[in-house]
Structure formats: structure tokens, C-alpha cells
Amino acid sequence: MPADRRLVDGVRLALTTFTTFPVRSGRIDRAVAGVAISLAPAVGLLLGLLLGALLTGLVTAGTTALLAAAVTVTAAALGTRGLHLDGLADTVDALGSYRSGPGALEIMKKPDVGPFGVAALVLVLLMQVAALTALADRPPAATLAAVVTAVAAGRLGVGLACRRGVPAARPDGLGALVAGTVGRPALVAGTTVVGLAALAAVPGRPWQGPLAVLVALAAVVLLLRHVVRRLGGITGDVLGAVVEITTTLVLLLLVPR
């Protein structure tokens, strides 16, 4: 496949995977999937700009910070069809069980959500609303930068999960399609872009934003080691969990001043 065609199809796949933007998908194979995952932070920047503009716009219009934060979190869930939240719940249910390997993967396939998954959803959403409420009190530019940083970092975490050397838990599915498709240059480029966006996230403390991103990514590396040990590799649900966990950690780490 020509490189330009792979890039176009990769952009389409990135948009349809990480957002609900009405874009028709093109050819899908591992090469295209690698491009899509490498571009995920850029998609996160775009989605973060929209969500950050929503949050700051609501606060500027006189909406309370708490309500604006709740609306923004709701919009984020709608903007991704709730797939990442679903992945979080399924992953936590599997890891919270006493099973490993095929047994844990079977739990992830079930359509219902167990107590561990419910608790994870409630806690993550509460933490996101609380963090955005606190961030909404800052100057609009800093609030916007914080939201952009967190959302983009969540998608950068997916690239980290799909780096070469991390296996897929199943021979089929999204995990098998994207596992091991992202090389070091793409990760370095994505981290640099997100780190630059993070410089404006905390007024007067330009180092805090990039540090928050690095700490969150380090936590993802530890999580992935545990996931590979318990499940045998990554799945689509694991990638959704990585998005939500990374985004939430960055938001929480950006709050203190």
C-alpha cells in the first residue's frame, strides 16, 4: 500500500477509534493500525480542544464549575461512545477476579458489569469531575491547556500499550490488530507534543504539566506489566482502560499548585 494511502486510512481509523466523528473508515490492517495508534495523541489534542472549550465556555457564561465539569465529562463519554469506560469496567472486573489467562479473558467478554467494574466507573468519573471542577477556577487558557494535556495523554497511553514487545492477549480482536505496532520514534514524538502542550497547564509552574504526563505514563507501564502477567497481553478493553486511567491521573496531578 502506498505510504500516502496508508496515512489517509490511518487518520480515518484514528478518528473512528478514538472519537465519534462521522468519518468513513478505509482499509484496515496492521500497518494502518500502527499509523492510527501513532496519531492517537493528535486526535486527543483535537478532542481535548473541543472539551476544554466546552468547559471554559460554560464557566465564562456563568455556569458553576461543578456543573460545567459534569457536562464536560458527559460530553467526553458521548464523544467516544463510552467505549473507553466500558473497557475500564471490563478490565477491572477481570483483574479483580481470582482468574488469570483464559478465565480472566472470559470475564471481559461478558456483557454485564461486575462490582469491581461499577466501583471503578464511579470512582474514575467522580475524580474526573472533581479535578475539572478545580481546574475550571484557573484562567481559561490554563484550563484549556490542562484539558488538552489530559485527553491527549490518555491517547498517548494507548501508544505506550501498543509499543513493540507488548503482546496481544488473544489471536483476534483489536488487541491483536494493534499490539506491537508502535515504534519508539512515534512514542518520542507523541510524548514531546503532549509535553509541550502541558507547559501551559499550570500557571507559574511550567514543569508540573510535563511531569504529570511522565508520572501517569510510568503508572501505565506498571499497569501493563500486571496486565500482561495476568491476561497474557493487551486487548481492546485494556486500551480503553489505559485511556481513562491515564487521563484521570493527569487531571489529578495537574490540580495541586
Rank of each mutant, 00 (worst) to 15 (best):
Leu95Phe: 05
Asp4Thr: 14
Ala186His: 08
Val71Thr: 12
Val151Ile: 15
Pro167Leu: 11
Ala104Ser: 13
Ala212Thr: 03
Arg24Asp: 15
Val73Pro: 07
Gly195Tyr: 10
Thr191Asp: 02
His84Leu: 11
Val194Arg: 08
Val32Phe: 02
Thr246Lys: 08
Ala150Gly: 09
Val43Thr: 13
Ala216His: 08
Val221Asn: 06
Thr247Glu: 15
Val32Ala: 00
Thr246Glu: 07
Ala134Cys: 07
Pro210Phe: 07
Leu88Ala: 06
Phe116Gly: 05
Leu126Gly: 08
Thr56Gly: 08
Thr20Ala: 14
Val147Leu: 08
Gly240Cys: 06
Thr80Arg: 03
Leu58Val: 10
Ala69Pro: 01
Val147Arg: 04
Ala31Leu: 00
Ile28Asn: 01
Thr74Phe: 02
Leu222Trp: 07
Val32Leu: 00
Val238Asn: 00
Gly62Met: 04
Leu224Lys: 10
Thr60Phe: 12
Asp137Cys: 07
Gly79Ala: 15
Ala69Phe: 04
Gly159His: 05
Thr17Tyr: 06
Ala131His: 00
Ala65His: 14
Glu106Asp: 11
Pro2Phe: 12
Leu132Val: 05
Ala200Ser: 14
Ala145Ile: 08
Val129Arg: 09
Gly114Trp: 06
Leu88Pro: 03
Leu231Glu: 00
Leu58Ala: 14
Val250His: 01
Ala70Thr: 13
Leu67His: 12
Pro111Arg: 08
Gly173Pro: 10
Asp93Tyr: 10
Thr19His: 03
Met108Gly: 01
Leu105Asp: 02
Glu106Tyr: 01
Ala104Glu: 14
Pro210Met: 04
Ala61Tyr: 07
Val23Trp: 00
Leu156Lys: 09
Gly183Leu: 12
Gly159Tyr: 00
Thr60Glu: 12
Val193Pro: 01
Val242Phe: 02
Ala130Lys: 05
Leu252Tyr: 05
Val73Cys: 08
Val23Ala: 01
Ala42Leu: 15
Val122His: 06
